[in-house]
Nucleic acid binder design. Structure first.
Lengths: 143, 143
DNA sequence: AATATAAATGCAAGTACTTGCATTTATATT
DNA sequence: AATATAAATGCAAGTACTTGCATTTATATT
């Protein structure tokens, strides 16, 4: 997604293209990897912008909820990593516990699920992440 | 799992049956539902015990990791709910966003996964939760 | 029963957000 | 271009843990 597409996505969701929001999106585009609210804050604080930490958190969550960003609980401790989603499709992630590498996976368990398990429920969504040890990290000493 | 089985599980994992830990397990047994670290702390603080909040958090996490407890991110905000696991088998949970009801599901996506998606990875584990709106909550004014 | 040792605790300080609210700002309407 | 309005921001205060470390405690060994 380029910035023009992102602007359209924002408009479609009644979200404004504010200065802080754009600075956040630009920083994400430059980072070209995964960032945390904290790392973005530190990066943006250096610049003239001076965006509040709460503004960053709120935006990262919001942008994730409309699919502009991916959000992953990298160390399964409730500290989230975010990145611009490169895949357009809905997807989940595979995370290496050792080096922290995050890879997209097309598989979504909701599609595979036998519907008797969720009988009576509507508006289903799922949270799904796989943790493991990637090939590069196998054999290496611990964490 | 009754208290005798739990004690065996602890011993098997080189964990001690300390006074705070036993108080926590008893409180969980009495609660017979889902508790948070905070709610347990408030409950136990009334009693003579006086267990530190960090002790409660550490124990809840530890007991979850060895399968004595289930842990669920009920509102997907990183605040965890815990309960003694009634099912012996590995399982995941279905959560109603509206009333917070948590139901176990036998389905585990790791078993269904085409192995090409996780090629090269070892020590796979997954985190999987389904969120939806249960039958009782449908039609009601939404939270 | 006394001792050793590894696990667990409590305390204090730190981290990473989250929330409520008054003020500001981007966009739509006139 | 001026105005209205709904969204977003920044601030301050709050929440829910988390971490490091010295001290205590449960269990295994003698």
């Amino acid at each position: 997604m380029d910035l023009k597409q992102i602007r359209q996505q924002l408009a479609k969701n009644n979200l404004k293209a504010t200065r802080p929001r754009q600075a956040i999106l630009e920083a994400l585009a430059q980072a070209s990897g995964w960032v945390t609210a904290k790392s973005l804050f530190d990066k943006l604080s250096g610049q003239e912008a001076n965006i509040d930490f709460s503004t960053i958190c709120r935006n990262l969550e919001l942008l994730s909820s409309i699919g502009i960003l991916c959000r992953v609980d990298r160390d399964s401790n409730g500290i989230f990593a975010y990145s611009l989603s490169e895949m357009d499709e809905h997807h989940h992630h595979l995370i290496c516990r050792s080096c922290g590498k995050i890879s997209p996976m097309e598989f979504c368990p909701l599609q595979q699920l036998n519907s008797t398990q969720t009988a009576g429920y509507s508006e289903l969504e799922c949270r799904f992440e796989i943790y493991g040890c990637c090939r590069d990290c196998q054999g290496k000493q611990g964490k």
